[in-house]
Amino acid sequence: MRKTRLLAALLLFLLLTFPLWGSAYFVGRIFTPALFFGIIALSLSLLAGYGGMVSLAQMTLAGLAGYGYGYLTITLGQPWWIGILAGLAVATLAALVFGLIAVRSTGIYFLMITVALGMVVYALANQNRSIFGGHTGILGIRAPELFGHSLVERTIFYYLCLAIGLTTYGFVRYLAGTPFGLALQALRDDPRRLSTLGYNVALHRVAAFTLSGFLAGIGGLLLVWYNGAISPTTIDLTRLINILVIAVIGGLAYAEGAFLGALVFVLVTNFASSFTQRFNTVIGLTFLAIVLFSPEGLSGIALRLWSLLRRTLLARLAPSRHTGL
């Protein structure tokens, strides 16, 4: 327990000081995207890990927040804070609607319905010019500016993503012990039993989905600031699946897994593309290997390695343990 905390503190220290010693490329192009993709994937960890609902629509929800922000700030020329509120509201409301449609089904059917909803939004975005800007999308989107600095300046944006990433992560972890989170885990294991304890299972599923839409929306805003534009490509089928791939690589059941998976994903897509044209194949193979060899994802592997390491360490240190380490 103490050692785990020590490790977490070390990790936090490294993350906080990263811009001081990490290369600009790693800070700006690897870790920052890993953080906002991680937040979007975290919205899926919440749904799938706690609630057993594997959704493919999380990127769609994130994208809708981006569209909301872009439409308000560019098309309507409103200030950034209205764009943020509108973006989050759109993602949350869309999730509410998606939830109402999807939650009566479970498992693979739930997944199919969410992917269908995602494709409907994709088609709509492609065809509608007045709001979504057709297949060009919305260009020239700018992040908010504070005290003369754009929030997407490399170091600022890294810290912004890190702060929001840590907050959302903490929130999802906290949720596990709340009545909301406990009931969510309970309905994953036995919805019928939960209903005979007085819970409205369908309502709870909708609420969880709505909450996940809000989280995905936060990630979507960061994404659209980073890209400076949004188009249907951002929410096409491949991108939807990418979020699932990220969450599964990291370990669906772990909130940490979302970020770990996102980091691996961004690394692979950045570096595999310089070695081979087929980085989709590399991602696919990684995905398959994880599913086959460690259904718990990288978090599961990391957890096993850590407990192994701790045991060896403890064995080594056993004679001197009373020194108060």
């Binding site: 709340t178 009545p179 909301f180 009931a183 939960l194 304890l197 007085g198 709870h204 609420a207």
Partner: peptide
């Protein structure tokens, strides 16, 4: 969970 199931605010976000 069984206790909270029959109370209001059963989906509270407070631990």
């Amino acid at each position: 969970l069984a206790i909270r199931g029959v109370q209001p605010w059963r989906l509270s976000l407070r631990r």
